[in-house]
Amino acid sequence: MISLNACIGSIAAICTTLAFVPQVIKSWRTRDLSGISLPMYTIFTLGVILWLVYGLLIGDWPVIIANAVTAVLASVVLLLKLKSIARC
């Protein structure tokens, strides 16, 4: 049986990861990233990558999976933002 801690951690991981999906879809479709803060997304993406490393170090699968997926999603938005800046 799954522990309460693991259950709460897994639900939290799913919620925070899914929260990025609409932003990635909107950014991908519209290519309008004017409302996206480059410093915020840079720091956030770095933080997510560090959480991923932390999850790997402690072997916590909800942390690992959620942050791996979130790192990919945040990186997509960050790369789109960088491309939009480069075009200016």
Rank of each mutant, 00 (worst) to 15 (best):
S3A: 03
S3V: 04
S3H: 01
N5T: 15
A6W: 14
A6E: 14
A6D: 15
A6L: 15
I8C: 02
S10F: 13
A12R: 00
A12F: 00
I14P: 06
I14S: 12
C15F: 14
C15V: 15
T16K: 01
T16P: 01
L18I: 11
A19Y: 13
V21R: 03
V21S: 00
P22H: 09
P22D: 09
Q23R: 02
K26Y: 10
S27A: 15
S27E: 00
S27V: 00
T30Q: 00
T30R: 01
R31G: 00
D32V: 03
D32H: 07
L33K: 01
S34H: 13
G35D: 12
G35T: 02
I36D: 04
S37Y: 06
S37M: 08
S37C: 05
L38W: 03
L38P: 05
L38G: 08
P39N: 10
M40D: 06
T42N: 10
T42W: 09
I43F: 14
F44S: 10
F44D: 03
F44G: 08
T45I: 02
T45H: 01
T45P: 02
L46H: 04
V48K: 06
I49C: 15
I49R: 01
I49L: 14
L50K: 04
L50E: 07
L50C: 13
W51Y: 11
W51T: 00
W51N: 04
L52P: 04
V53I: 15
Y54D: 03
Y54Q: 05
Y54T: 02
L56T: 09
L57Q: 13
L57D: 11
L57W: 11
I58R: 08
G59N: 06
D60E: 15
D60N: 14
D60F: 14
P62T: 07
P62V: 06
P62Q: 06
V63I: 15
I64M: 12
I64F: 09
I64L: 08
I65K: 09
N67P: 09
N67V: 07
N67Y: 09
N67K: 09
N67F: 10
A68W: 03
V69E: 10
V69A: 13
V69G: 07
A71Y: 00
A71E: 01
L73K: 09
A74T: 14
S75C: 07
V76A: 12
V76N: 02
V77G: 02
L78W: 08
L78R: 11
L78D: 03
L79Y: 12
K81D: 04
L82S: 01
L82F: 10
K83N: 13
K83R: 14
S84R: 11
I85F: 11
I85N: 10
I85S: 05
A86E: 11
